[in-house]
Design a protein around this nucleic acid. Sequence first.
DNA 1: TCAGCCCATAAGTGAGGCTTGTACCGGAAA
DNA 2: TTTCCGGTACAAGCCTCACTTATGGGCTGA
Lengths: 307, 307
Amino acid sequence: MLGRVIEARHLRVLRAVATTGSFSAAARELGCTQPAVSQQMKALEASAGTPLIVRAGRGMRLTQAGEALVRHAAGILAGLTAAEEEVAAIAGLRAGRVRLVSFPSGSSTLVPTALAALRAEHPGTQVSLEEAEPPRSVEMLRAGDCDVALAFRYGGAAGSAESQEWDDLVVRPLLSDRLVGLVPQGHRLASAESVGIGELAEEPWIAGCPRCRGQLVQVCAEAGFTPRIDFATDDYPAVVGLVGAGLGVAVLPRLAVEAVRGRGVREVRVEPAVRREVVALTLTDLEQVPAVAATLRQLERAAAARV
Amino acid sequence: MLGRVIEARHLRVLRAVATTGSFSAAARELGCTQPAVSQQMKALEASAGTPLIVRAGRGMRLTQAGEALVRHAAGILAGLTAAEEEVAAIAGLRAGRVRLVSFPSGSSTLVPTALAALRAEHPGTQVSLEEAEPPRSVEMLRAGDCDVALAFRYGGAAGSAESQEWDDLVVRPLLSDRLVGLVPQGHRLASAESVGIGELAEEPWIAGCPRCRGQLVQVCAEAGFTPRIDFATDDYPAVVGLVGAGLGVAVLPRLAVEAVRGRGVREVRVEPAVRREVVALTLTDLEQVPAVAATLRQLERAAAARV
DNA sequence: TCAGCCCATAAGTGAGGCTTGTACCGGAAA
DNA sequence: TTTCCGGTACAAGCCTCACTTATGGGCTGA
């Protein structure tokens, strides 16, 4: 048997034949030759098991089976073009949804810039934003709960463990975020241009998120002391507020400080320079999704514009 | 470019992948090998212009485009199977309509037998019956107003013209219908076994339909006389009634006489034997239509059973 | 009767779908 | 950890099938 099942191609040919009333005209409409139409119709009749058209001198008529098939073809082909259009809209960035997860200081700095540019370039795209710190955000990425994760990692030994976890992901480096020191206005180091970390050994500390705190402890250990951490909170405005209130000093990523208009605090450069690398993460397959690719591109542009 | 447009085959594969959650399981469900599924999915993603699935360790997830396509695929494939089933019903004689046109004496003899058998064999088929004499019924057949025409033709010189008109049609001979003479009871020839047509030369005649009348005149001319036709009507019961009332004699096809229970008339065999050939006509293409073929078959069986 | 249009058929070609075979990667069990 | 198993990707070969060109026949209208 030739044609086992009915394919969309057959229905397109049949519809063209039914509307034009001739094989040749259908061929012209379909952009192929007349024998092609002839063969398709023969194959379709073979799989139908009954003639679909009757030649009636000039022109042709549909049989009952032909009429039934044409009637169904209308809906089927309409559904098919609707499906193609919806997919094309997603592929062409006239539609498409991206679920973005970012760590807090990223979502208030890089993300707004990137999303504004994305919206301007592709108004049809929709982006949902959620906040989560790196370990959790990567979990969400793997679980399929988001498409892009804005995360960060610290260089050196501590980062290697994370890098290993990410080697099956797409890692797009965005920028290198230097840590800056925060001291209260009026502090003895408030007007210093650069401060060695060891000079803060005896100060009370306000620590940030757990990972940042770990990083802080490690850096201080390398400098030969253990920081006395009086307060620790995920809330960066709170950190800045605590420093401003004179309750201690802090070391925060540049991005986090920038996101908070701190009053009563001074930024000082801390030596040795410690940087965290801010990256965008996504799954290998998702990198090819147009909306995801566009989001990554805009995140990179937003990061580049920050230099 | 590989896959230009989306075909039903692609959607079947995608649906199987989406429901089973793996290429291998989809291949088993579809009755093909796993690389076949792999290739189809790759082709589909190529024509979609965006990934449709993301591999997520154990199993896989659909992307937004994939979800859209699967959502549409449900309706499209449902419509396709509905179309296939409807066509299969027609092809398998579980459905199907035949428009039958018959001359009057055929519709009351052969047709009921044939249609009863058809109904018994294929209860799903629907037959519509209309009455029309041969010239008109063939017109209807050519115009697409009916599918099968029950007609008749006279042999000899008169029939050749009709045969020429029918040589592009499918002609199924059903039976040869001998013409019989009708005389009133008590007529001088009422008890004759066989009557030469010439013996009726002086009788008043009741003629039937126009074509039968033409045939009558021709036969009489060959016998050397011109019949005096007092009445002519398409209505065979009327002809029989008129003969029964003693208003004349008539020559009618056997089928027509059989259809009418005549009172007060006697049948006599007329010599020379004149026969009309009863045939079923259809279009070449329609002969392959199952419902038409079944109708023709039952008409032939009904005619054969009449011997 | 001739010209034009349309359809069917045949043969050749090319694309692409399917298969087998193999390698790679992951997770689960020993 | 090693080993095994289920799953996928990749490559090569085959074969089906869809399209092409070329040709013949049939019907219509001039």
